[in-house]
């Protein structure tokens, strides 16, 4: 049996001999979700990274643990990775919207379109015709993080990127664009916002709560 300094390990009764090789099965580590967080109320949601989870609720739980544990956070969104449609990546001074296929005149949305205006009747008709909301995220610089820029209404993910180009295409640079169907995003609820106030009682996780210099000075003074 393996003898450890950790009594919990000793209780496992681990054999000395190396165990025969094993291979993990597919999905042993679940599926993937992409996580966005909000640093403070009113700030845009920003990409923080992926989590592995079997389903959206668990993804939210893991995301909260992973990304809101240490620093201020006022909201989280999780999206299945598969639900995000993206453009190609371009250089730091270019626009990813320029890589989208140019639409033939006939299928291009004629402006003004209810998608860009406050035409309520047109909006209802569009939803009835199968259009849906999409959230759009921009990456402004390689190595940085995607940030939420707004919503568009569109008939498909590819269409959402086209509409986003019409609405947000003037912004530059845009290294990469993500579009996610709004219905696929699991969002923290504003009513639950007290779940984010977890940090004040955990001062022992802050570098500033360690006053080590005082003790060093005292030691030095006593040992001159």
């Amino acid at each position: 049996m393996i003898q450890s300094h950790d009594p919990r390990m000793n209780r496992l009764g681990l054999p000395d001999a190396p165990a025969p090789a094993v291979a993990k099965e597919a999905l042993d580590q679940f599926g993937t979700y992409e996580v966005f967080h909000q640093k403070k109320e009113g700030a845009p949601f920003v990409y923080v990274g992926p989590v592995h989870a079997p389903e959206a609720d668990v993804a939210f739980l893991f995301a909260k643990e992973q990304f809101s544990r240490r620093f201020a956070c006022t909201g989280l969104w999780v999206v299945p990775t598969a639900a995000i449609t993206l453009t190609d990546y371009v250089g730091d001074t270019e626009s990813a919207y320029d890589t989208l296929p140019l639409l033939a005149k006939s299928s291009a949305a004629p402006a003004p379109d209810s998608r860009y205006t406050d035409d309520t009747a047109g909006e209802e008709a569009a939803y009835a015709a199968g259009e849906e909301d999409y959230d759009i995220f921009h990456l402004k610089k390689r190595g940085k993080a995607h940030q939420h820029v707004g919503k568009v209404r569109a008939s498909s993910p590819a269409d959402a990127l086209q509409v986003a180009k019409a609405v947000f295409g003037e912004q530059r640079p845009v290294v990469n664009v993500w579009a996610a169907r709004s219905a696929d995003i699991l969002r923290s609820d504003d009513e639950d916002r007290d779940i984010w106030t977890t940090t004040p009682e955990k001062k022992y996780r802050d570098a500033i709560s360690y006053k080590v210099q005082d003790r060093i000075e005292k030691f030095k003074a006593e040992n001159q």
Partner: peptide
């Protein structure tokens, strides 16, 4: 041991819809 002892929990949590896609970024 941790991986093996937790395997049944992970299996129980899987749903038919769980889908792995390479993380985006």
């Amino acid at each position: 041991a941790a991986e093996e002892n937790g395997a049944w929990v992970r299996r129980a949590l899987l749903t038919p819809k769980t889908q792995y896609v390479r993380p985006l970024a």
